[in-house]
Design a protein around this nucleic acid. Structure first.
Lengths: 367, 367
DNA sequence: CGATTAAGGGTAATCGATTACCCTGTCAAG
DNA sequence: CTTGACAGGGTAATCGATTACCCTTAATCG
């Protein structure tokens, strides 16, 4: 055999663009091949007990194998009035925190035979509403709200008791609703204790919009604990980064932080905000964490590589998926229907272990 | 009116966990309310021309509004043998590059009224196969392969001419297949030119597995161009990071790079790999980019904030979504069915503009 | 032995849309 | 006046599953 370039090990006949989509086998064909009715095939596939003898079962499974039969999701959903799809509504996949949690949720769903429809909502009520309607049209198994905002359809969904799980941020309406997240109050309190132990003088706070319960909890708990320790008149300047984006934080840091009197301690309610603040700090010649201790929230795994100067509260990303799936299943399990509505996951305080300094950017070199 | 705590502005009656899911209105009810047949309702909804007088149209739309009718996706999919779902198979949502591209694709799909099912495949052929089967069962509108690997079901999908679009990495089989990505060959060649202009002595290469066409193109093109400029005997040590993860790159950098003779130029085939290599460089006391020029690929937008020392080839994230949607639509458009199979997007060379140094990590401080 | 009960399995209704096919007017061209 | 063409709209088949209901057989119980 002459040696050939080996990259595509298996070669396929050239695709015929006009080849008809060989329509997949239906339950009818399986039934015919196995010599039983479609009812029996359905029962075998769905493991209905006492409805098929071992011999029949075997014949059906053999036919399924032969035809490589896959039940049509549409047929099933139409009849059962329920699909195996779970919608995940996330503010922004560009945010590592949301992307990681979505990833964790997807893996956990897959283990249950469910699939994830993922949508960016941009924290926009209209987009959130459009997607909630879409989820209804899909008759989803459940909806996961990663960073919900108030919106009419969300209200509607709550009223009709649709299977809804809120992640991280709690439900923006005052009704009982399932929730998965960390204990932001305790975490922020521990951060306050740590920062107080390092810098008794006070700390600056850069926070995301307070419409989010997570941001609120983090800010108020931090303030309360710090003032408990340092006295009520302790300065805790509060800067509202009106988005949750690093560039907004960067711009705000520019107007608030100057090299002559930099804050010795900075508490940011998310890592993203910390990145923006830190960028400015580096650009005015500060050295972190020597000149300022900066604390974030979320614990992006990338920090170890790119932001060793950042202390943060790490969320247990991999636990979110299973917890969300449990919360969804509870909607269909009579016995758990009124179980606990909150799933509080453990967090971890990560202290900066790297001393990293930056100088002002040089002029870009010409190509 | 007495002032009340204002957080949840709208209050909802306590949810009744046993409330029946008020089943949504069907096309039948709309037809009854409008006094027409379901056929007419369907035609109005789908804008079939010359099938409804303006008056009828109006009545139907009014009924749709009144009942807040939403067509069942399952009913539609069952009849049309095609859903409005697009599957996106990505190796890992924890990778910012994949997350950003998925986000862009989702937005573009939404603009077309399509929804995205997203799945992590972990570059595992078995998981990829399971998801490809799932996509068939869902009768998806199309499948987007972000980082495809060879697998039996993929072969099968290609053979049956399913609507498949490969992103970034080309199809791992040697058949015509639609592809969206940047011109890796040209990009790597330009990187080689730049690195040569800075450091004629040569460069080290850290690369992801060469099973990926993107990695192959980047490595071979870089080598070819650098050797054209520097001579064939120019040293270009090549280190295979067998995963595409930053921690693997970090470990390999540890065994290959020492402080006494660090490489003056390092070419990494992805930003993630560059992060791992850079971490080691920082830890042994190097200053980047002063001591080494390090080049990545992908252009994570976070670099501006967290890795200003990194030069990189930036992918136009926001262009991926529309390009992918175009490629998918081409499968259903007779006139475009045999159009160009490749959509090559522009890239941008980003040169490091920050000088940032790191010292070895300090002992973690006790809590 | 008769009456129950459980196992095994078939028949056909059902879910909610789309669409092929058919029918009725109207109007303009020839 | 006849003939088409076209607008407007209804009837019913169809997509592929699940499942309520029914039937037969065999085993069990008193």
């Amino acid at each position: 055999m002459p040696s050939k370039p080996a990259k595509p090990k298996i070669s396929i006949a050239t695709r015929d663009p006009k080849a008809p989509q060989a329509s997949a086998a239906s339950i009818e064909e399986v039934a015919r091949l196995a010599g039983v009715s479609t009812a029996t095939v359905s029962r075998v596939i769905n493991n209905v007990p006492n409805k098929a003898s071992p011999a029949t079962r075997e014949r059906v499974l053999k036919a399924v194998e032969t035809l490589s039969y896959l039940p049509s999701r549409a047929g099933r959903a139409l009849r059962q009035q329920r699909s195996h799809i779970v919608g995940v509504l996330a503010p922004d996949l560009g945010n590592a925190y949301h992307a990681l949690i979505s990833g964790s949720i997807e893996r956990a769903l897959r283990d249950q035979g469910l699939v994830m429809v993922l949508a960016n909502t941009g924290e926009d009520p209209d987009q959130q509403d459009a997607m909630l309607r879409e989820m209804r049209a899909l008759q989803v198994f459940g909806v996961v709200m990663l960073g919900a905002v108030q919106s009419p359809e969300l209200e509607q969904s709550l009223k009709s008791n649709e299977p809804l799980v809120f992640v991280n941020r709690r439900c923006p309406y005052d009704v009982p609703a399932r929730h998965v997240g960390i204990d932001n109050v305790r975490a922020a309190s521990e951060v306050a204790e740590y920062l107080f132990s390092q810098h008794h003088q006070g700390a600056w706070i850069f926070h995301a919009p307070l419409k989010s319960s997570a941001s609120r909890d983090r800010v108020t708990s931090f303030q309360r604990r710090f003032q408990e320790l340092a006295g009520a008149d302790c300065p805790l300047p509060e800067i509202d980064v009106s988005t949750r984006r690093r560039d907004s934080a960067y711009q705000l840091a520019k107007t608030h932080i100057s090299a002559d009197a930099p804050p010795r301690a900075i508490f940011c309610t998310t890592d993203e905000i910390a990145y923006g603040v830190a960028r400015h700090c580096f650009e005015i010649g500060l050295s972190l964490p020597r000149d300022s201790t900066i604390f974030g929230f979320d614990g992006n795994p990338m920090n170890e590589f790119l932001a060793p100067w950042l202390s943060t509260v790490r969320s247990p990303y991999e636990l979110f998926g299973p917890a969300v799936v449990d919360a969804l299943n509870a909607f269909y399990d009579e016995s758990k229907a009124s179980g606990p509505f909150d799933s509080i996951l453990p967090f971890e305080i990560i202290l900066s272990n790297g001393l990293q300094t930056a100088h002002a950017p040089a002029e870009p070199e010409p190509v």
